[in-house]
């Protein structure tokens, strides 16, 4: 009798362990057996907060204030000088901050691949995947390799990245100042490389 009992228990255990394998997908929140100090009385990034009326733990920037890491120099931050003229070239202090042009271009390439290639394509010819897959005409950017964009001051390229332009979204909120200038440098390098090819 006891032997058949043991066999039954084993069979049930075996069957249930086969039925419920590790890593099964489920939309139910995971069961946590021991929850000591799992939830401490503090807010994590992007958590919902009951303390604030808008329900966010991360506070949006207060009006008429600047973030601590923001650049004050208008040429660096906006790409324009006091008279709203575009900076003709990449500011020297940015190049120096990267330890020279080569490092700036290398950095610029990685950032360009992340933020610009989806639409502008790896060669900057406007043949990215987003216009191709969506087939939406307004999101298809112009090629970088025409004379208008070739002769644009660096500051204007910079401002396009920071503020966006008509149908192009702004990247100021995701790309920090120095990386924006590095992208400008890389766009220039791309333009030069395509000129040689012509």
């Amino acid at each position: 009798m006891s032997r058949s009992l043991i066999a039954a228990v084993l069979a049930i255990a075996g069957a249930s362990s086969l039925a419920a394998c590790q890593g099964q997908h489920s939309s139910e929140p995971p069961i946590v057996p021991i929850r000591n100090m799992h939830e401490q009385p503090r807010y994590d990034a992007q958590e919902a907060a009951t303390y604030f009326t808008d329900g966010r733990a991360m506070r949006p920037i207060v009006e008429h204030t600047v973030a601590q890491e923001m650049e004050i120099d208008p040429i660096l931050e906006d790409g324009v000088d006091e008279n709203l003229d575009y900076a003709p070239t990449i500011p020297d202090e940015v190049v120096a901050g990267f330890d020279g042009m080569e490092a700036l271009l290398a950095r610029g390439q990685t950032r360009f691949d992340i933020y610009c290639v989806p639409c502008h394509g790896a060669l900057g010819d406007g043949e990215g995947m987003v216009p191709e897959v969506s087939n939406v005409a307004t999101i298809r950017p112009p090629t970088f390799h025409d004379d208008r964009i070739r002769h644009m001051p660096d500051g204007q390229l910079y401002a396009t990245i920071r503020n966006g332009l008509r149908n192009m979204p702004a990247y100021g909120h995701v790309v920090p100042v120095r990386d924006r200038w590095a992208i400008v440098g890389y766009v220039r390098a791309l333009q030069l490389s395509q000129m040689d090819g012509q």
């Binding site: 043991i6 419920a20 489920s26 929140p29 069961i31």
Partner: peptide, 25 residues
């Protein structure tokens, strides 16, 4: 046998690998 099964159940089913992996809300 019972102890073995209990150990197995705890190690297998109460482990993060079983409880957390595959969560897709």
């Amino acid at each position: 046998v019972g102890g073995g099964i209990a150990t197995f159940v705890v190690v297998y089913y109460f482990s993060p690998r079983f409880l957390y992996v595959g969560y897709e809300p």
